[in-house]
Design a protein around this nucleic acid. Structure first.
Lengths: 241, 241
DNA sequence: CGTCGGCTTGAGGGAAATCAAACGATGTGG
DNA sequence: CCACATCGTTTGATTTCCCTCAAGCCGACG
């Protein structure tokens, strides 16, 4: 696990985080599972006794609200842990679905809890995941609470780009974005129709183009200007590329 | 710490959570601090080496966006831990301010980290706080992404009421609400003006009345109906009163 | 008594939702 | 191989919710 996996954080913890990450990986071993696009990893309300790590592909945490409407609460990218709350909750409050073809590895909560008791480094690794996610949720609340459609979409794209970049999964200014406009709307709290219009505006302004599952950020500085309110002090500094 | 402090969670963990909570309390000891209303606990961007527990009063995590606008990211009530991210981040990404007069107790990150290494129960208690907060953030994202002003305000009031109720800080259907309409707007992603209008509608519909810092929920069922989309499966079941 | 912070109300405008429909790819079965 | 269904995208017309601007009101407090 490269050091850049844990950026922005207290430098003295890198070694321990790495250690926790490796132990967790080892414990998860080869117990992996493939999920088709749109496939379900966990259904909302069902008992869940497993914590996951995403190996490849994209998955999303999804809350269904009445009459088919959905809100995507979070998007997970390769390397990240998800379902960590299963440690404390008997049932997942929301569903977890694959956005693209994905593979996940897993560990039962019971084993993980033993591992935690024995290995503080694993605790730390889990807390890191929770803290990182919390920061992202805080930023996103600012986006939904105070940002308009352009700010939300710009911020979303920059966030994906940055996270993929760190893991070496994005080359230059482009990356694969396995989300339909409907899903982008579900994430940004907008309708498909409006997402489409905003994407056209951004494209015509030369900021970004999205075609057949690939996003190209033509003007990162411009996107940053649009989405600036959504980023916290750490993300404002940590400019990719 | 009464068992009801950790509701909705795996029953087998109550004992360990209680244990972790007590050890943490003991370690924090009498090192407490009083904060005036509107007082600052932590300023955004400053290095922070302390994790807090709120003893009395209300505090909020606040992100300032351009030109004086603000977004309240979270509201903490007595008994809850906050600033836990300081364990991993050198600086707090947002400010923490008192909504009412408040007292907090504290522990330095260095001591806390030693405690974690020695006591898995304390790790668990911290993770509980992080998970609980994450659930609340997820719910709130649904509110901001898919809910209208009435849904947001109804959900906010029910959330406060439920949480206070658990701790024995709300008697019956009413509780003290130390927030101005401006702050309610900052939390709900609305303008003061609109908050005022919606509160009037809710009052005239006989759902809730807010006067001089006290909220009275006259029709909890009606409020639940308005805010239902915002609650996850756990909160839907766990009806207070 | 005047000022200030918070609450309240009105009028007008704008961003995004809703309703409706067409278009283009992709795949499938007759 | 073409008719046809499906899924995602695109565009137009209308409506709605909430914001902005503006101003008056009330109680607290110096």
């Amino acid at each position: 696990v490269p050091r850049t996996e844990f950026p922005l954080h207290r430098a003295e913890l890198y070694a321990e985080l790495d250690d926790g990450d490796r132990r967790l990986s080892r414990e998860m071993g080869e117990d992996t599972r493939a999920v088709a696009p749109r496939g379900v990893v966990t259904r909302a309300g069902e008992p869940s006794d497993i914590v996951y790590r995403l190996r490849t592909g994209w998955v999303a945490r999804v809350r269904g609200v009445d009459d088919g409407k959905q809100q995507i609460l979070a998007v997970f990218l390769p390397g990240e842990l998800f379902g960590v709350k299963a440690l404390l909750l008997e049932r997942q409050p929301d569903g977890i679905e694959a956005l693209s073809a994905a593979t996940v590895s897993q560990i039962e909560v019971i084993r993980l809890r033993k591992l935690i008791a024995a290995e503080p480094a694993v605790s730390l690794r889990l807390m890191f995941q929770l803290c990182e996610e919390e920061r992202r949720l805080h930023n996103w609340i600012v986006g939904l609470g105070r940002g308009d459609a352009e700010a939300r979409i710009a911020a979303m794209l920059l966030d994906f780009h940055r996270r993929l970049h760190r893991r070496g999964l994005a080359a230059g200014d482009s990356f694969t974005l396995p989300m339909t406009q409907q899903q982008i709307g579900d994430f940004c709290g907008l309708t498909v129709v409006h997402v489409n219009r905003v994407l056209r505006r951004l494209r015509e302004a030369g900021l970004v183009s999205i075609r057949q599952g690939a996003a190209i950020l033509h003007d990162i500085a411009g996107l940053r200007a649009l989405g600036r309110a959504v980023f916290d002090i750490y993300e404002s500094e940590d400019a990719p590329s």
